[in-house]
C-alpha cells in the first residue's frame, strides 16, 4: 500500500493555512526533545525581584520550568532546605562532574572581600556571594546574568556604591549571557533558558544580549511614536502623548516591551508612566533623571 489515504481537500484560505502552520509549529515544539538540565539559581546582592518576576511567568510558568525544563537545585527564595545543608549542596555540585546551568541575579559585592553579602555559612565560616559566583561560575556549562544588578551592578551599584557592587562579568572571565532589566521580564529568562535547552545558545548581540528579546529600540515600536514624530509632548504624567520631555528613556533602551508587555502581557511601563531605561546598561545612574518637569518644550 504505497498510496496515501485520500483526504477531503483542505481549506486554502489564509486563515486556515495560518492555523495549520501554527498547529504544526506547536507540535514540533512539543515533540522536540527537551533535555532536562540542572539549574542553580543564585541570588546575590540585590532585591530578589527577578525570582519574583520569574514566578510571574506564564507559558512556560514556574511549575512547568521545574517539572519539565530543569532540575532546580538551589534558590534561596524557594528551596525547602535551609542553613548549612542548603549551602553544602552548592559545594557538592562544584566538586562533582555534573553539568549545570548557572543563573545569577543580584550584584557581586566586593567590599571587605565580599563580606557585604553572604550566601550562607558552613559551620562558622561565612560563604560570600563573591566566593560562590567564582566557584560555580567556573564550573557551569552556561552562565546567565539575570537582571540589571547581575549584568552591570544595576541599582545595587548606584552611587556612592558603598558595598562596591559590580556585575558578574567583573569577577568572571568567561562568556555570560546577559539579560538586563529591572527586573527581567519572565519571558526573557524563560525564553532564553528554553532556547538553551532545545537549540543551544540563542543569537546574541555584541553586548551578549539575546537578539530575540533585545534587538529593537523601544522608541521604534512605541505606540506613542507618532506623537514624537509630530512634536506632541506630554507635559505631565498620565497624558497619552509622547513622554520624551518628562524623561522617557525609550529612545535609548532596547527591549521588546512595547509588543511583549508585562505580567501576562496586560500592560507595560509606558502604559503607566515613563520608561526609566531599566534594561539599559548603566541603569540607574546613567538613566537618571527619571522624571523632570522643567525641560524646554518649545
Amino acid at each position: 500500500m504505497s498510496e496515501h489515504p485520500v483526504l477531503p481537500p483542505e481549506s486554502t484560505d489564509n486563515e486556515s493555512v495560518a492555523a495549520r502552520l501554527a498547529r504544526e509549529a506547536k507540535r514540533q515544539v512539543d515533540q522536540s526533545t527537551l533535555k532536562k538540565k540542572k539549574l542553580v539559581y543564585l541570588e546575590l546582592n540585590g532585591c530578589s525581584g527577578n525570582i519574583i518576576s520569574l514566578l510571574n511567568g506564564s507559558n512556560p510558568d514556574f511549575e512547568y520550568m521545574i517539572t519539565s525544563m530543569v532540575d532546580l537545585l538551589y534558590s534561596n527564595s524557594l528551596m525547602a532546605a535551609e542553613g548549612e545543608q542548603a549551602v553544602q549542596r552548592l559545594f557538592d555540585l562544584a566538586d562533582s562532574e555534573e553539568e549545570f546551568i548557572l543563573a545569577v541575579e543580584g550584584a557581586v559585592a566586593l567590599k571587605n572581600k565580599g563580606m557585604y553579602h553572604l550566601v550562607g555559612k558552613i559551620g562558622d565560616r561565612p560563604v560570600t556571594g563573591l566566593e560562590m559566583a567564582e566557584l560555580l561560575g567556573k564550573k557551569a556549562t552556561h552562565v546567565i546574568s539575570v537582571g540589571a544588578c547581575s549584568v552591570d551592578g544595576g541599582p545595587s551599584a548606584a552611587r556612592p556604591n558603598l558595598s562596591q557592587s559590580v556585575g558578574l562579568q567583573r569577577v568572571l572571565d568567561r562568556h555570560i549571557i546577559k539579560l538586563p532589566g529591572c527586573p527581567v521580564n519572565p519571558d526573557w529568562f524563560l525564553g532564553t533558558l528554553a532556547h538553551l535547552l532545545m537549540f543551544g545558545e540563542p543569537k546574541l548581540d555584541d553586548m551578549n544580549r539575546p537578539l530575540m528579546f533585545y534587538s529593537t529600540l523601544i522608541h521604534d515600536r512605541c505606540p506613542r511614536r507618532p506623537f514624537f514624530d509630530q512634536g506632541i509632548f506630554a507635559e505631565k504624567l498620565g497624558e497619552p502623548y509622547c513622554l520624551f520631555k518628562v524623561g522617557c528613556r525609550g529612545p535609548v533602551t532596547r527591549t521588546d516591551c512595547p509588543t511583549r508587555k508585562w505580567n501576562d502581557h496586560v500592560n507595560w511601563p509606558i502604559g503607566a508612566s515613563t520608561c526609566i531605561g531599566c534594561a539599559q546598561f548603566g541603569f540607574p545612574d546613567r538613566m537618571a533623571p527619571f522624571i523632570s518637569y522643567d525641560t524646554t518644550k518649545e
Binding site: F244, V252, S292, T296
Partner: peptide, 29 residues
C-alpha cells in the same frame, strides 16, 4: 531646561539636541 534649548559641543561644533530622541530631558547617559 526652563525654556532654553539644549546645546552640546563636539569637536568645536555646537549642536542642537533639544528634540533629539536620545536626549530625553536634555540628558544622555
Amino acid at each position: 531646561m526652563n525654556g532654553q534649548p539644549a546645546y552640546v559641543a563636539v569637536n568645536g561644533v555646537v549642536y542642537d539636541v533639544t528634540n533629539n530622541a536620545a536626549w530625553s530631558v536634555a540628558t544622555h547617559f
